[in-house]
């Protein structure tokens, strides 16, 4: 039996929460992505061609979209959880008859929605600036966007549960999320890397997610999209299992 109303309410609260501060949660990330785009495109457009026939700007946009998406998905669940934990108002959710699965789905669902929303905004801004070919495959694009936001939303739940203070959360973000996303081929194709770094990138799950999104947008990618989907889905399952186990144990939230 599932407490559907409870699940929906918690999901809606998490969405409502970021919608109440859209400047911070939607606009700021869009502006950041825009700045990246302007800088890199202006500097590199005429020098770099990653895939034949695709300008650097067009190559960059999918990477920026997915990077913004995953960073926001992560921020949504992690900052909401750590705020509620530090402020003490998480008790209101903890005393309610919600299972760990319902708790998980509500937080991750809201993170996915935030990721997709911000991704769409960045894409729309990019459309106005860069000459983009039409989306190659909306289905692949959606699949990778949802899975990528889910994976990062789940990591956000884990980080939010684990961190006791904001600086611990920042450490999680700066030493794990940020390197994994920058070293995953947002700004380049991994085939242009020296062999050691190329091989290292292949064990980074974020690489497959970004590569998959690029395939969805442009129809070109470093690896086969089926492989990319398998790795992305597999990693999402692994972090889900970890997150659900922590929640079921009440790790750091039910003392």
């Amino acid at each position: 039996m599932i407490n559907w109303v409870g699940l929906y309410t918690l999901f809606a609260k998490e969405v409502w929460r970021f919608l109440k501060v859209t400047t911070q949660t939607v606009l700021t990330p869009a502006v950041t992505a825009l700045l990246y785009l302007l800088v890199f495109q202006t500097v590199l457009e005429d020098h770099v061609e990653v895939y034949p026939g695709i300008g650097y700007g067009a190559f960059l946009v999918p990477g920026l979209v997915v990077m913004t998406m995953i960073q926001n998905a992560f921020a949504n669940s992690s900052s909401s959880l750590i705020q509620s934990k530090m402020n003490g108002n998480l008790v209101f959710v903890l005393v309610a008859p919600l299972s760990s699965l319902e708790f998980f789905l509500a937080f991750v669902g809201a993170a996915i929605l935030r990721g997709l929303l911000v991704g769409v905004v960045v894409w729309a801004v990019a459309l106005a600036l860069v000459d983009l070919p039409p989306v190659h495959s909306p289905a692949w694009l959606l699949a990778f966007s949802v899975l990528g936001s889910a994976m990062l939303g789940i990591l956000g739940v884990i980080a939010g549960i684990w961190a006791d203070k904001y600086d611990q959360l920042a450490a999680f973000q700066n030493f794990l999320i940020l390197p994994l996303s920058f070293l995953s081929g947002v700004f380049y194709s991994i085939h242009d890397l020296p062999p050691f770094w190329e091989r290292l990138s292949l064990i980074n799950p974020f690489f497959y997610m970004i590569d998959g999104v690029r395939h969805g947008f442009l129809g070109v990618s470093d690896v086969d999209p089926v492989l990319a989907l398998t790795v992305t889905a597999g990693s999402t399952l692994v972090v889900s299992a970890l997150c659900l186990a922590l929640l079921a144990k009440g790790y750091k939230i039910r003392h």
Partner: peptide, 22 residues
């Protein structure tokens, strides 16, 4: 303790929702 994002009525509605009441 309270959630600073919401008004009194919103908080009460959310709390009712968590308990499965719409």
């Amino acid at each position: 303790v309270y959630d600073p994002f919401f008004t009194v009525r919103e908080l009460l509605r959310l709390q009712a929702g968590y308990f499965g009441l719409g």
